[in-house]
């Protein structure tokens, strides 16, 4: 009996935090992401130099390709004499906001379409799921590049394009969850009380599937950040002079820089790695924490 009661209790409230906090990787991920977020939010207070301004020496010449430590710059300067540390810090704003907004868009589209398909079934389900199949089997990168090229490349277009290409997984997933939950007796009870469809979905179905949706969205965010970096590296994403980890990599993409000045490309690369890794760890931790079937 006790076990059955626990099954229906809110799994996160009962043991979730305990499980999450025991997961060392998830905690480390959360700390790291917090640090990166802090870096993005407080960027102007962290850095000393404008990330978009070329630094000039006493002689009025642009100080190109400074090494770390020269002129008091932590990571040196790039080929246009801009403070690399400043650019890395400011680029966190781009990556994280693109990740957040793109996931917001893809989650909104995915949840709405998945809910409609799962709840109403019949032709709505058939049409939506066929659209999902079509979008799903398109190579996303290819699609994104085409759309990004047709639209004027900008940070907002990058957000929209990534968002609109990544909703299919969420839609499928939400549809499946709704098919499962809608047959449960408490949902049937609400229908039998005369609740309208909107009420049933918003009051009873969605609140009971938020946990897996949050997990899904977290993992999606890591993917979105990676896609943004790839697009920017290819030159169809965030445009210069705005700094993004991806376009900083592109900037460093010549033999001389790659071999002789690693401080121009290692820091943004490491930042991408850390951001994606930390979010993935958090997602895995949340998934385990929300899963009521796991033991403490």
């Amino acid at each position: 009996m006790d076990k059955a009661i626990r099954k229906w209790a809110n799994p996160f409230k009962t043991h979730g935090w305990k499980r999450f906090s025991k997961n060392k990787l998830a905690l480390a991920g959360a700390a790291l992401l917090l640090a990166l977020t802090g870096m993005a939010v407080f960027a102007p207070f962290i850095v000393g130099n404008d990330p978009y301004l070329s630094l000039t020496g006493a002689d009025g010449q642009i100080m190109k390709n400074l090494s770390p430590g020269d002129s008091g710059l932590l990571l040196g300067a790039d080929s246009l004499g801009r403070d690399i540390f400043s650019r890395v810090v400011y680029a966190a704003r781009v990556s994280l906001s693109v990740g957040l907004v793109a996931v917001g868009i893809s989650a909104a589209v995915g949840i709405i379409l998945g809910a409609v398909a799962g709840y109403f079934g019949k032709w709505a389900d058939i049409i939506i799921m066929r659209v999902v199949d079509v979008v799903y089997c398109f190579p996303v990168m290819f699609l994104v590049i085409i759309i990004a090229t047709i639209l004027k490349p900008s940070i907002y277009n990058v957000m929209i394009v990534i968002g609109l290409c990544n909703w299919t997984g969420t839609a499928r997933f939400v549809r499946g969850e709704i098919l499962r939950v809608r047959e449960l007796e408490y949902v049937q009870a609400s229908v039998s009380l005369g609740a309208a469809n909107g009420r049933v979905i918003l009051q009873h179905i969605l609140p009971n599937i938020t946990a897996p949706i949050i997990v899904e969205a977290t993992l999606q965010m890591a993917r979105a950040i990676l896609t943004e970096a790839s697009l920017s590296y290819l030159g169809v994403g965030v445009q210069m002079p705005t700094a993004s980890w991806g376009n900083m990599l592109m900037d460093a993409n010549n033999i001389a820089t790659l071999t002789l000045r690693p401080w121009q490309w290692v820091p943004p690369g490491v930042c991408i790695l850390l951001a994606v890794l930390s979010i993935n760890f958090i997602g895995d931790g949340l998934r385990d924490a929300f899963d009521a079937r796991q033991k403490k």
Binding site: N10, L184, Q188, A189, S190, G194, A195, N208
Partner: peptide
């Protein structure tokens, strides 16, 4: 939905028939 007022159901499984995220008041309020 108006007619449903006159006909109700009591379910078999008391563990599945109440929304786990709603208090008794929220369930009876609906």
């Amino acid at each position: 939905r108006g007619l449903r007022k006159g006909m109700q159901i009591i379910f078999q499984d008391p563990y599945a028939s109440l929304d786990p995220r709603k208090t008794v008041f929220q369930t009876l309020e609906e």
